[in-house]
């Protein structure tokens, strides 16, 4: 069991949890993920690591309660424990392995969307600690849904905010802000890293392609084991089938077939939605008499 050391609400439905997992904390690197199972009946779901502290033996995850399993995880309280917390999985971000002199020559632009803001943090933090310059764009529906802004401000060279309704920062999509930075303000970047909803990453990649700006995306594909065994996370990158869990989760955003990736994410959606609806009915005191819950 993996005790929850700390639990904090970051925005509506988005929870930060610091988990006691010393082995994972010792080996974790930016870009990697963990497989989490809430309890003995739970699903194994992949979550990108949002921070880690080897000395404390802790790993931080940020979860948005959207499906039955993420709601189950978010319902656990500080002092309770997750049944399983396996990792770190996947390959670390490319810059971790490159010669530092080379990485220091580069200027990074990070584009974070929604709950994807959290896994951007350990990457920007790593770069800051290694003397690499990185700007960060955080996008959200509105100012209330923004997360990690203070933490990010401490590690980013420049922090930009975009909200759909203009309640904070730039009014519009992150792609509009990228265009403004590059085209209006003449900012120059050597690499872009985008983490967020699949649809956001797709459009960030389309935008940066115009500038020939190398773009890395972190895919949140469906997985069961997370170690290369099931192949549920298959994704087409540059015309070749790759496994997100072992070949990724980070890929060249200009090579990813996002339409296929988004379609594959929905593989079990109807079933999940059905399960969630039945659960909601049950909570409301309704007992199904025609066997829909079977």
């Amino acid at each position: 069991m993996y005790p929850i050391l700390e639990k904090r609400l970051l925005a509506e439905g988005i929870w930060l949890m610091k988990i006691h997992a010393p082995r994972v904390a010792r080996s974790a690197q930016p870009g990697q993920f963990v497989i989490v199972r809430a309890d003995a009946h739970g699903e194994r779901i992949p979550l990108t690591i949002s921070d880690f502290d080897a000395a404390e033996g802790s790993v931080t995850i940020v979860t948005q309660a959207i499906g039955a399993s993420t709601r189950k995880i978010c319902a656990l309280e500080q002092g309770e424990a997750l049944a399983d917390f396996a990792g770190p999985l996947g390959r670390p971000s490319e810059f971790v392995h490159l010669p530092l002199e080379e990485v220091r020559q580069r200027r990074y632009l990070f584009v974070a969307g929604g709950v994807g803001t959290a896994p951007i943090y350990p990457q920007v933090k790593w770069l800051k600690e290694h003397g690499v310059r990185a700007d960060v764009i955080i996008g959200a529906k509105n100012s209330r849904m923004l997360i990690y802004t203070d933490a990010m401000r401490a590690v980013a060279e420049n922090l930009y905010i975009a909200t759909d309704d203009g309640s904070e920062g730039f009014k519009g999509m992150v792609t509009g802000l990228i265009e403004e930075l590059v085209e209006q303000r003449g900012e120059r970047y050597d690499e872009c890293v985008a983490i967020g909803p699949m649809i956001m990453m797709k459009f960030v990649a389309l935008t940066t392609r115009k500038y020939n700006l190398k773009t890395t995306v972190s895919l949140n594909a469906l997985m069961v084991d997370g170690t290369g065994m099931c192949g549920a996370c298959r994704v087409t990158v540059g015309g070749k089938t790759r496994f997100t869990c072992v070949d990724g989760p980070e890929f060249d955003g200009h090579e990813v077939d996002f339409d296929e990736a988004m379609r594959r994410q929905g593989m079990y959606r109807t079933q999940e939605q059905r399960a969630a609806a039945i659960e909601a009915e049950r909570e409301a005191g309704h007992v199904c008499k025609i066997g829909l819950d079977k």
Partner: peptide, 21 residues
Amino acid sequence: GLPRFMGIPGENLNGVVSANE
């Protein structure tokens, strides 16, 4: 534990799974 696929068109359609999965 690593599953093989055939490498034929359409293998990444929704509904194609490895026996392992």
